[in-house]
Design a binder for these strands. Structure first.
Lengths: 255, 255
DNA sequence: TTGTGTGAAAGGATTCACAGCA
DNA sequence: TGCTGTGAATCCTTTCACACAA
């Protein structure tokens, strides 16, 4: 998941493991819920359960941030909310742009979770001239031509790509050229970016495929599958060079 | 722990690492693209680049599936597509239901990536009676009352939850009770499920928060941040028990 | 010669288990 | 007494480097 980042632990002990960083938002959410219920303190056990992890992991994670707990008592909810928010950089507001206002882009624009957690949608951008000016989630859609100006004028450093796969790399290039250094990519493509730019990917069909793998596993628990003890060594180098018409390799996934 | 796990017991090499499984869809996508361009073979180097990983990792990953390459040549594209599809369980069609047809649910319903990769949207389900019957992505929205019937009638084992956070656990419980054993959760909640049920989570705001963390890091590269070498040990146990009114802990994240 | 397949080494992440502090 | 904070052990993942097949 984590986009290849060549870690250079230059500056002292600034080394929170990537796996820990990925869980901080989880803790933050659980803590925010507790905070709203005015719960003053929480133990690692309780918080871990609320966040869906185990308590040893949680304590180890927190140990990278500092010693914010009280032995025999637990953690002060408000204090932890603040510390984690600060660590994640959420005490400042991040303006983001969303490019590609199709179904998904519109869904993202309407997603409340952004605004409430340190992010502000600075603009919605789409390539379709017919979309321009149309209000989506209270914001008028802007045309792609304005992309560069929007980025610079708003000091945007985080961009969300929700375009079709074909347009993603081009949009990415323009975002980066205009100054964006973090990209959240929903298009099913591998983006290539220069050093120093972070890309995170969310891929809906990949998640489903992973589920399918485990699902298949469950189904074939007793009924020994095709590949039980015999590795499917198919003699594909039969006569000539390439492969027979079809019969050796089933035609899956019709384009 | 069980001693006979690391050995070479009866069932041969039944153990594809989770990290590898998570990358198989990536390879599959890259291979499908090559297949569409009628490229007959690829090297680990080329395919790795296309998939956004390094070649050593890719070769190691493939080694868990079997020896599907040809030394000195590379991999047969069609053959690999088939093998990976089979491994992921995509040679069969998986009926899925999407629950919660708001912005996101509609986006998912319209997402082409599902249908083309072994998944079939069996039904769209929403709790709003006003939605019932409305066509979304060519399918009529069904009411939540029908959930159980839909699951059993279609033999659905994979469910997608795109409801608001508040409804997610309840929907999850009903899905599981009706026979669903894999869930893709888009709601920002931790779902609790019985043993044997897989849950994968996609959380939009979490991804952004992880980006923000790295973004902040970049910004503070030279301008030594608040927390440079001094751990922010705040003397929060001042006089009484709890914390002072406010002034110690800044009020971040206004609900 | 070329590029796969894979032991072995290195690096992370998770879990254990318990000392130590409130 | 109760729960945090953390070395140490374990497990998982990635990378290295090279034997070996085509």
């Amino acid at each position: 998941m984590a986009t290849g980042r060549t870690h250079r632990p230059a500056t002292r002990s600034r080394g929170i493991p990537e796996a820990t960083v990925a869980r901080l938002p989880l803790y933050l959410r659980a803590l925010t819920a507790l905070s709203e219920r005015s719960v003053p303190t929480v133990s690692s056990e309780e918080l871990a359960t609320a966040a869906g992890v185990n308590s040893a992991k949680l304590r180890k994670d927190f140990s990278y941030l500092g010693s914010y707990g009280t032995r025999g008592v637990g953690y002060d909810v408000e204090y932890l909310v603040y510390q984690i928010s600060r660590e994640l950089g959420l005490t400042q507001d991040w303006p983001v742009v969303i490019v590609g206002i199709g179904n998904l882009g519109a869904a993202l624009a309407n997603y409340g979770g952004f605004a409430s957690r340190g992010f502000r949608v600075a603009a919605l951008i789409d390539a379709d001239p017919a979309m321009a000016g149309k209000p989506v989630a209270g914001l008028p859609v802007r045309h792609t031509d304005e992309l560069e100006a929007i980025i610079t004028d708003n000091g945007v450093s985080i961009g969300v790509i929700a375009t079709p796969a074909g347009a993603a790399q081009q949009v990415c290039d323009r975002l980066v050229a205009a100054g964006v250094t973090s990209i959240l990519n929903f298009a099913p493509t591998v983006l290539s970016v220069p050093e120093g730019v972070d890309v995170r990917k969310v891929d809906l069909s990949i998640e489903l495929q992973i589920l399918a793998f485990h699902e298949q596993r469950k189904a074939g628990e007793d009924a020994a599958q095709t590949t039980a003890a015999t590795p499917p060594r198919v003699p594909r180098t039969a006569g000539g060079g390439r492969k027979g018409p079809d019969g050796d390799v089933p035609a899956v996934m019709p384009a």
